[in-house]
Amino acid sequence: MTSHHDPMSQAAKPLAATFAALAKDGRKALAPFVTAGDPDLDTTLAVLEALDRAGAAVCELGVPYSDPIADGPVIQASYTRALAAGFTLEKFFEMVRKATGRVKMPILAMVSYSIIYRRGIDRFVDDAAAAGLAGLVVPDLPLEESDVLDATCKGASLALVRLVTPTTPPERAAEIARRSTGFLYCVSVAGVTGARTDLPEGLVERVTWLRTKTDVPVLVGFGVSTPEQVKLLSGVADGAIVGSALVRRVGELAAEGPEGVAKGVENWLADLVKAAT
C-alpha cells in the first residue's frame, strides 16, 4: 500500500504542532535519544521529564533489543544493561503512559522490527498509541518491507519516521523522504551509532537536497554530541538528534539515582538546546 504524503494528517499531528511552534520562534529541534530501562525505568521516567524541562523538541525512546545490529557499543551496552535489569514491554508501555501524561514533548519509540513483529503489528501499534507515543522509528525496516506497518500506523495516528543514509541512492532517498511521516531522520554517516567529533563531508549538500524532497522536517542524527555540532546542523537542517552522547552520560551518572541522572542530563541538554537556533 502506498499513500501520498500528507504532512497535516492525523498521524503527524503532535509532531507537526511541535515543529510549527519551533518554526514560529525561529528555533530548530533538539531531539534526544535515550534508552528505556537503562539503568531502570524509574530513571528513564525522570530523564524524560528532565529532557522536557531542558527544552527537547521531541524524544526518541530506544526499546532495548538483544541483537541490535544498527547500534554501536554505547547503545548496545545500554540495551544489555536494561535487559539484564528486567526490561519488558509491559513495563515499558506502563512507564511511557506515565511519561506522556507529564511531558509536553512528543515521544517516539525507536524499536526493532523483530520486537514489533513478535508482539504482532496491530497489538504493538495499539499499545504504542494507547501509551501516548507519537510515532515509531524502526531502524531495521526498509521501505520494501514497510507497507503493513505504515498502514497500521496511519490507522492509529502514529508517525512512522524513516531513515535516509549516505549509502542510499538519490532516487530511493527521495522515495523514503516522501513516505516519511512526522519527520525524516537523516543519518549523517554510514556505520553504527556512536558519538563523533566533526560533521561528515557532503552532509550539508545532502540535507539541503533532501529538504526539497519532503514536506516534513529533516533531522540529522548519528554522532552528534556538542553544542558546536548542533549549531552547525541548525544552519542546514530542521534539527539534530543526540543519541550515544546522552546514553553515555546516563550510564556515567547511573550511580547517582534517578534524580541525580535527571539533573545532570538536564543541564547538559539545555546547552545543546540553546545551540539549536
Partner: peptide, 20 residues
C-alpha cells in the same frame, strides 16, 4: 524477487545496507 520463501525470508536491515 523480494527474497520470499512463502512468507519467510525478506530483508529486515538498516537502510545503510540496502544499497549493498
Amino acid at each position: 524477487i523480494h527474497g520470499r520463501f512463502g512468507r519467510f525470508g525478506g530483508r529486515y536491515v538498516p537502510e545503510t545496507l540496502s544499497a549493498a
